[in-house]
Amino acid sequence: MPHDTAVIDWIDLCAIEDIPLQGSRRAIIRGREIGLFRTMASEVYAIDNACPHKKGPLTEGIVHDCSVTCPLHNWVFDLKSGEATGPDEGRVQTHAVEIRDGRVFIQIEG
């Protein structure tokens, strides 16, 4: 597994094309379910795949701009910050992502 100099491992997860444009992909990394999201502008974000409201799987939601709408009760999360937007309050854990030569690398926090 490729390493970086950082304390936390950078994990080489997949090719960027493995995540559909304006779509998402579930990843199970060391037993933990992470949601990967690729925006219209081809930026990739990673957050924990459970809505703080009722644990809805966020990867099943619709991706728009830099946000995703939970499929269960339409909470909207900003993918960059993990914060709920609009009237709802809550946050999902975000994880650092880097794209290197068309591959998606992720650093799992916390």
Binding site: M1, D9, I11, L13, C14, D18, I19, P20, R25, R26, A27, I28, I29, R30, G31, E33, L36
Partner: peptide, 12 residues
Amino acid sequence: AHEFAPLTLEPA
């Protein structure tokens, strides 16, 4: 197919 198969990495 990507919808149904998650990317899986086993615990290190």
